[in-house]
């Protein structure tokens, strides 16, 4: 295998006068699961959104599977990617949002079919078969005909995961996937994510679920104030956090 699936180098990002990312560098190997934790406003969600270019970056570089995200390097100058090329890059990067963002005017099945049919031009019948398989995989085959408003939060999030998987992504981004859920619905989503990790998917997960990070993560990254304060194997860093800020954070969430 060549390089890592995701390479983030010296990434900086400002919102107006506020610098939310202040030089982040991070690698995710193929099949790796990195969990990103940190206090709210620390920049962890912004980092994730930069990887599929929902946000632009002000300096640094991000590569996914060897492709520079958002730009092409020609000679010694960077050129913005044309919209069509950007769409091409995003097809390989799945994203799951805190508030699901299922398409409310389409059923669960139609939500999962939407990407392949519209973006990749897959024939409807084939997309339908594959979508049903994916709904089966997240345990919702019997809810295929339901509209999002008729599903619980946990069910909606599982449909959202299936919708992303339908594009056969190389990388999955999870932006606080369980933060908007009632406590009793968190586990059904984590179970699906655990299975996904076990199947070898490369994942970047912004989360507050330390149990999940310890059990599934290969790397735990603690971000505070726009920089990586501490990282390492989840079991090790959780058992013996080195930095005071990380210890204080863990004291609040555990």
């Amino acid at each position: 295998m060549a390089g890592p699936m995701v390479s983030i180098r010296s990434v900086r990002k400002c919102f107006g006068p506020v610098e939310v990312l202040r030089g982040i560098s991070l690698d995710v190997p193929e099949g790796g699961v990195v969990c990103v934790v940190g206090p709210s406003g620390s920049g962890k969600s912004t980092l994730l959104r930069c990887v599929n270019r929902l946000e632009t970056i002000d300096s640094g570089r991000i590569w996914v599977d060897g492709d520079l995200i958002g730009y092409a390097e020609r000679g010694d100058r960077l050129h913005h990617l044309a919209p069509a090329e950007l769409c091409r890059q995003r097809q390989d990067i799945g994203m799951v949002f805190q508030r699901f963002h299922l398409f409310p005017h389409r059923t669960a099945l139609e939500n999962v079919m939407e990407g392949p049919v519209v973006v990749k031009g897959v024939p409807r019948e084939r997309a339908r078969k594959r979508a049903l398989e994916l709904l089966e995989r997240v345990g919702l085959a019997d809810r295929a005909g339901h509209y999002p408003a008729q599903l619980s939060g946990g069910q909606q999030q599982r449909v959202a995961i299936a919708r992303s998987l339908a594009m056969d992504p190389k990388l999955m981004l999870f932006d606080e996937p369980t933060s908007a859920l009632d406590p009793e619905l968190v586990q059904e989503v984590l179970t699906v994510m655990r299975d996904l990790a076990a199947s070898g998917m490369t994942m970047m997960v912004v989360t507050h679920e330390m149990g999940f990070a310890r059990e599934v993560g290969d790397n735990l990254v603690f971000i505070d104030g726009g920089v990586i304060v501490e990282q390492g194997h989840p079991r090790e860093v959780l058992a013996a956090p080195r930095h005071e800020r990380f210890r204080a954070f863990l004291g609040q969430v555990l």
């Binding site: 599929n52 929902l54 919209p83 069509a84 769409c87 091409r88 890059q89 995003r90 097809q91 990067i93 799945g94 994203m95 949002f97 508030r99 963002h101 299922l102 398409f103 939407e114 990407g115 519209v118 973006v119 959202a160 919708r163 992303s164 594009m167």
Partner: peptide
């Protein structure tokens, strides 16, 4: 909801597809 646009964009839809679909 702006999240709808983001969800559609993250599937790789073009601006026109996001608008129409």
């Amino acid at each position: 909801d702006p999240g709808q646009r983001e969800a559609a964009e993250s599937l790789g839809m073009s601006h026109r597809q996001v608008l129409r679909r």
